[in-house]
């Protein structure tokens, strides 16, 4: 009887440890995807970056996304050049990042496959300007591997991005879509 109790206790301790180590885990990717869409009725203006660096901590939801501005690919090279030189000044401000927390990380069960709504709260730094941003999205868990997806909007003027065509060919409000598969 005593032996059985000891075995049960050992199994319980192992399960608790496994759960704890899962929560402590830092999930990371260097090939996350961030896309933006500033299309207007006149012109399609969209780009994608497939080298997004992102990490989050399973236990407390601390999260970071970092992206190189020159890594955004447009369909049209001329548009990409204008984006970098005339609007984002990407030589002067080569990076953008979001640092914050997934505020409801406790609602995500990384041991159970499923789709969990998440809310992110933090600071977005773009074009040398930092603003508070709140975004909602989804954390999909499949086989212990999480994938975060979400879309939020920012106003270009809030980040001092200025240019001739903003409000005409370029939408003043830009939709940013994040899709990161973590390991």
């Amino acid at each position: 009887m005593k032996q059985q109790m000891t075995k049960i206790a050992a199994v319980v301790i192992l399960l608790v440890c496994a759960q704890y180590s899962q929560a402590q885990k830092v999930y990371a990717t260097k090939t996350g995807q961030i896309a933006f869409n500033a299309s207007s009725p006149i012109e399609k203006i969209a780009a994608i970056n497939n080298q997004t660096d992102s990490k989050f901590v399973g236990e407390n939801g601390q999260v970071i996304f970092a992206v190189l501005i020159k890594g955004f690919k447009f369909e049209n090279q001329l548009m990409e050049d204008h984006f970098n030189e005339n609007y984002m000044e990407s030589t002067k401000f080569p990076k953008a990042d979001f640092k914050g927390y997934i505020t409801n990380i406790k609602d995500v069960n990384f041991s159970k496959d499923g789709s969990y709504p998440v809310t992110l709260d933090g600071n977005l730094t773009l074009h040398g300007v930092t603003n508070k941003v709140t975004a909602t999205g989804t954390m999909k868990v499949a086989g212990g591997a999480p994938e975060m997806e979400g879309t939020f909007k920012i106003k270009l003027k809030d980040y001092k991005v200025e240019g001739l065509y903003i409000g005409e060919k370029i939408a003043p409000e830009v939709a940013i879509t994040v899709k990161c598969k973590y390991q």
Partner: peptide, 13 residues
């Protein structure tokens, strides 16, 4: 390839 800058690695595309 094109050097795009530095995150936790130097990124080349």
């Amino acid at each position: 390839g094109f050097c795009k800058g530095y995150l936790s690695d130097v990124v080349v595309t």
